[in-house]
Amino acid sequence: MATTPQKAAEPTGFVYGPLIAGWLIPGAGHFLQRKWGRGALLLASIGGMFFLGLAMQGKVYSGAHDILDLLGLAGDLGNGLFFALSRIAGWGADSIQVTSADYGTRFIVVAGLLNVMAAVDAHNLATGRKK
């Protein structure tokens, strides 16, 4: 007699909460699902990358003057509240003056992209697509 595969439990409630929380604060989506270790590592890695980028006098994109600026802004927006905080507080350089500032700019952009990956991972955990 053939056995039928068991269906995963249907997610209940607002499943986009971890996605939004994870985007706003790195690791928060995992914290909401009691994945404390993963959340702490994500917060340390993404937050560390963002703030090291600022410490290297990296540029925080404020507008898009050409296609490369637009891509940089899209990456920066992935940082959620960190990006908003840096814009409000005026952190980050307006233009790249030294070599390490170029590294810093890339750190900030990549931190945003990694945060989007982490937020999507939190969403997958909430929907049961990932354990």
């Binding site: 006098q57 390490s100 810093g104 990694l114």
Partner: peptide, 21 residues
């Protein structure tokens, strides 16, 4: 903060690898 290119590579690799993993 003014790290060397290789130090920046190591930091980048460390943070990105943690998130990828």
């Amino acid at each position: 903060m003014n790290p060397s290119h290789f130090s920046a590579v190591l930091l980048f690799a460390l943070f990105a690898s943690v998130v990828f993993g």
